[in-house]
C-alpha cells in the first residue's frame, strides 16, 4: 500500500508533462493513417519510398520491398520506429526515471520517505512500478492513437486490428528496457541532469549502431549490442509476430537494469 501511494505521488508530480508526452505519442500515431491516405495508399507509398536515398530509408527503417509486400500495415508500422515517436517515448521514460530517483536524491526529497519506517527496497520498488506504468501508458497510447486515426481517415488497404497486441507488447518491452537502464543510471547518479545526459547518449548510440549496421556491412556484428535490434514493430503489425528472442532479450535488459539499480541504491550513500 505504501509503495502504491509513493508511486501515485511520483506520477502526480510530473503528471502534466507525462500526459503531454502521452498525447504527443497518440497524436503522432493518429496522424499516420491520414498521411497514408493522402499519399495514395500502398502503391503510392511504395513509389515514394523507392525514391528515397538508402541512407534515408535506413534512418526511417523503411524498405520499399517490404512496403510493397506489406501494404498499409507495413507503412503504418513505420510510425513505431520513427525517430520522433522514439524521442517522445524516451523523453517520458528517461525523464521519469531520472527525476524520481536521482532528482529526489539531488533535492533531498527522498529523505521524506527514508526517514520513515520505509525500506530502500520499497522506495526503489515505487520507482520501478512508476516506470512500468509509464511504459504501459506509452505502449498503449501509440496503438490507441493509430486506431483512432484509422477510424477517422479510413485509408485504403487492410490492417489486422489484433496485430496491435503484439505491436504494443514489443513496444512495451523496448520501453521497459529503456526504463530499466535509466533506473540503473538514476540509482548510480546524484543529479537529474547527469542521468538524462547519459541515457540520451546511450539511446542515440544504440539507435545509430542499429542505423549504420543497416548501411554498412562491417558494422553488422555490432547490431546485437543495440536494444533497437530487438525491436521490430513492422513484423508485429504486418504478421502479428513477436520473436521470443526479442521478448527475452528486452525483458532481461530491463530486468537487469532495474535489478542493478536496486543493488546500487541499497548500498550507496545518499548525497549531501
Amino acid at each position: 500500500m505504501t509503495v502504491l501511494r509513493m508511486t501515485a505521488r511520483l506520477l502526480r508530480r510530473g503528471l502534466a508533462g507525462l500526459v503531454a508526452l502521452l498525447l504527443g505519442v497518440a497524436v503522432f500515431e493518429l496522424v499516420n493513417p491520414f498521411v497514408a491516405d493522402s499519399l495514395g495508399g500502398p502503391q503510392g507509398l511504395e513509389g515514394i519510398l523507392r525514391s528515397l536515398p538508402p541512407a534515408l530509408q535506413a534512418f526511417t527503417k523503411s524498405q520499399p520491398e517490404f512496403i510493397a509486400v506489406s501494404g498499409l500495415a507495413g507503412y503504418l508500422s513505420l510510425g513505431f520506429t520513427h525517430p520522433l515517436y522514439l524521442t517522445l517515448a524516451s523523453a517520458a521514460l528517461v525523464g521519469f526515471g531520472a527525476r524520481t530517483l536521482a532528482g529526489e536524491m539531488e533535492r533531498g526529497t527522498i529523505q521524506l520517505a527514508l526517514s520513515r519506517p520505509i525500506s530502500r527496497f520499497q522506495v526503489y520498488a515505487a520507482r520501478v512500478l512508476g516506470v512500468v506504468i509509464v511504459a504501459v501508458g506509452l505502449a498503449i497510447a501509440g496503438p490507441v492513437g493509430m486506431l483512432l486515426g484509422m477510424g477517422l481517415a479510413q485509408p485504403e488497404g487492410t490492417l489486422e486490428i489484433r496485430y496491435f497486441v503484439p505491436t504494443a507488447l514489443g513496444t512495451l518491452l523496448l520501453f521497459w528496457a529503456i526504463g530499466g537502464l535509466t533506473l540503473l543510471g538514476s540509482a548510480a547518479s546524484s543529479t537529474t541532469g547527469r542521468v538524462v545526459a547519459w541515457a540520451t547518449a546511450a539511446l542515440v548510440l544504440f539507435y545509430f549502431i542499429d542505423y549504420f549496421a543497416t548501411l554498412w556491412a562491417f558494422l553488422e556484428p555490432l547490431e546485437p549490442l543495440s536494444i533497437f535490434a530487438y525491436y521490430d514493430p513492422s513484423q508485429s503489425l504486418v504478421n502479428g509476430a513477436l520473436p521470443a528472442q526479442h521478448i527475452i532479450t528486452l525483458g532481461l535488459i530491463g530486468l537487469g537494469g532495474a535489478a542493478g539499480g536496486l543493488l546500487v541504491f541499497l548500498h550507496r550513500d545518499l548525497p549531501t
Binding site: 502526480r12 508530480r13 533535492r107 533531498g108 526529497t109 521524506l112 526517514s115 520513515r116 519506517p117 525500506s119
Partner: peptide, 21 residues
C-alpha cells in the same frame, strides 16, 4: 535494521526537500 530503527522516529528534513507541487 533501518526500518525497525525508524519505526518510532521523527526527523527534521531540510526545508527544500518537500514536494513543491
Amino acid at each position: 535494521d533501518g526500518v525497525a530503527a525508524r519505526r518510532d522516529l521523527g526527523f527534521l528534513v531540510t526545508p527544500d526537500a518537500f514536494y513543491p507541487d
